[in-house]
Design a protein around this nucleic acid. Sequence first.
DNA 1: GCCAACGTTGGC
DNA 2: GCCAACGTTGGC
Length: 168
Amino acid sequence: MKSEPNSRFENGIDMKFSFDDLKASPNQTSCWDGVRNYQARNFIRDQMKIGHDVFFYHSNCKEPGIIGQCKVVKESYPDHTQFDPKDPHYDRTSSKDNPKWFMVDVKYVRPLQRFISLAELKKAHLDHLKNGGPLRNLALFTKARLSVQPISQEEWDYILKMESSDES
DNA sequence: GCCAACGTTGGC
DNA sequence: GCCAACGTTGGC
């Protein structure tokens, strides 16, 4: 899941939500509101289950990359911000009877032992495209603009291995 | 701040 | 249902 660690204002509301912000949330848990893309919505609504592991990715910042790990603690329910006219993610075409947008709750787990930058992931991705390897289809590159992306067990395991080795 | 990539909208 | 115009994402 991608989130912006730096302040950026939309309709006077700060879009910042860093990994530290998640840690500082009540019970180290937060809802993941504001997703307004159908593909991402479908992952949230249909795929994300309690206990699923999630990488927390910092985007739109000086050094983008994976900063830590969190997990799903509450499954899909309607995103309240779609009903709030003052919210930047208000959607007047959605109704409470038939909500369009959903969210899950995620809970902080741990920071990675080291930051895994986009550059490093890209390097591995390009290598795996050429020579074969688990990151050849990583959604971060094949579905780059999605803010919520699926990850396979194989991809997950490989990235965890990167965490405990030196950057190459 | 630029802009490529890509998703959405709406006229036809 | 096509597709041009427009909007958004997010790396650089």
